[in-house]
Design a protein around this nucleic acid. Sequence first.
DNA 1: TACCGGTACCCGGTGACACTGAGTAGCAGG
DNA 2: CCTGCTACTCAGTGTCACCGGGTACCGGTA
Lengths: 116, 116
Amino acid sequence: MAKQMTEMLKGTLEGIVLAILSEQPAYGYEITARLRDQGFTDIVEGTVYALLIRIEQRGFVDVTKVPSEKGPPRKVYSLNAAGTEYLDEFWRSWAFLADRIGRLPRHDRDQKEEGS
Amino acid sequence: MAKQMTEMLKGTLEGIVLAILSEQPAYGYEITARLRDQGFTDIVEGTVYALLIRIEQRGFVDVTKVPSEKGPPRKVYSLNAAGTEYLDEFWRSWAFLADRIGRLPRHDRDQKEEGS
DNA sequence: TACCGGTACCCGGTGACACTGAGTAGCAGG
DNA sequence: CCTGCTACTCAGTGTCACCGGGTACCGGTA
C-alpha cells in the first residue's frame, strides 16, 4: 500500500481500533489479526500495541488480564464510557472530513458501489 | 473542531490541496481562503505554506511567480504530471480507507446535528 | 507624515502519531 | 533441541499539522 496510507492512518487507526472494541472486547494480538483480516495487511503488532497503551492511558478502555493456554496472558481491552464518547467524536470528525473530501473536484474515475 | 481532526488531516490535507490544484492553479493565500470556505476554518496559513513548500520540493507542482497589485508577488502552484499521479494514488488510498471504515460496526449514527 | 489593515509569504519549534526492528516469554511439535 | 506460534513490550525514527511569531508591499485615513 502507498506511503500515503501511513499518514492517512494517523488519527483514523485509533478510531478503527476503538470501533472494533465497541463491538466486543478484544486483546492486542487478536486486534492485529482482525485488522489484517480487514485488509490492513501492513499494520504490524508493534503499532497496535503502542496504540492500545495510549488509549489505555487516556482512559478510553478497561483492561482485564486473561490467562491464555498458548502463551503469555492476554490483555483484554473493553471500551468504557469515556471511550464510547471519544469514539462518537471520532465518527463526527470522520463524517465531516469524508463529506468535505467527497465534495472535492472529482478525479473523473468515479466508482459507485451500490450497497448490499 | 475536535483534536481528532488535527491527526486525521495528516496525509489528507495534502491530498485536499492537491485536488484543489488539480482543478486550477492557485497560490497559497488563495488556497487557504478556499479551505476556510469549504469548512476547514481552523487551518491557518502557516500550515498551508509549509505544505506547499513540501509538495514543491517533492516535485508535484510547478511554480510561477506572478506579481500582485495588492502585496508581494504570488507563488502560483500548478499540478504537474508527478503530482497528478500522486493525487491519483491519494484517491486510491482514500477509497480504500473510506471503504474499510465504512464497514466498521456501529457506523449507523450519521445523524446530522443541527440546532442548539 | 504616520499609522492601520489587508494581501502574501516564510520559519523554528512542538506534540502526536504510525512505523521500524528488536526483544521477552510460554507452549507445542518435529 | 530448536523452530514456530502465541502474546506483549519498547527505544528510536520520520512525517505531519499546529503554534506563534516574523517580513514585506500596498491603499486608505487621520
